[in-house]
Amino acid sequence: MNFWRPSGQGFGALGEGELFLFKLHAPHHFIVGGGFFARAVRLPLTLAWDAFREANGVPDQDVMRRRIAHYRRTPLEPHANPEITCLLLAEPFFFPREQWIPVPESFKSNIVVGKGYATDEADGRALFDAVTERLQAQVDHALEVLPATEAAVSARFGAPRTVRPRLGQGAFRALVTEAYARRCAVTGEKTLPVLEAAHVQPYAQGGPHAVENGLLLRSDLHRLYDQGYVTVDPDDRRLIVSPRIREEFDNGRHYYALEGQALAPPERGFRPVSRERLLFHAEQVYRG
Rank of each mutant, 00 (worst) to 15 (best):
F3K: 12
F3L: 15
S7T: 15
Q9E: 15
Q9N: 14
G10I: 11
G12D: 14
A13Y: 11
A13P: 06
E16C: 13
F20D: 10
F22H: 10
K23S: 10
G34I: 09
G35F: 10
F36E: 01
A38R: 04
A38I: 08
R39V: 04
R42I: 05
L43D: 06
L43P: 06
T46I: 13
A51I: 04
E54N: 06
E54S: 08
A55Q: 15
V58E: 14
D60H: 14
D62H: 12
D62R: 15
A69M: 13
H70D: 14
R73S: 13
P75C: 10
P75V: 09
L76F: 01
P78A: 03
N81V: 02
P82S: 06
I84H: 09
T85I: 01
L87Q: 04
A90D: 00
R97A: 10
I101A: 01
V103M: 00
S109T: 07
K115E: 11
G124H: 05
A137H: 10
A137E: 12
D140K: 13
L146E: 01
A148I: 02
A151S: 10
A155W: 07
F157E: 12
R164L: 12
P165K: 11
Q169E: 14
Q169K: 15
Q169H: 12
L175S: 01
A179I: 02
A185T: 05
T187Q: 04
T191G: 08
L192V: 15
P193Q: 00
P193K: 02
P193W: 03
V194C: 05
E196P: 00
A198L: 00
H199G: 03
V200T: 02
V200Q: 01
Q201E: 11
Q205S: 12
Q205R: 15
V211S: 05
G214I: 07
L216I: 00
D220N: 09
G228C: 06
Y229C: 05
V232M: 02
D236K: 07
L239V: 10
P243M: 01
R246K: 08
D250G: 08
D250T: 13
N251S: 12
G252Y: 03
Y256D: 09
L258Y: 00
Q261E: 08
Q261G: 03
Q261R: 13
Q261K: 10
A262Q: 03
L263P: 00
E267G: 08
F270C: 06
P272D: 11
R275D: 04
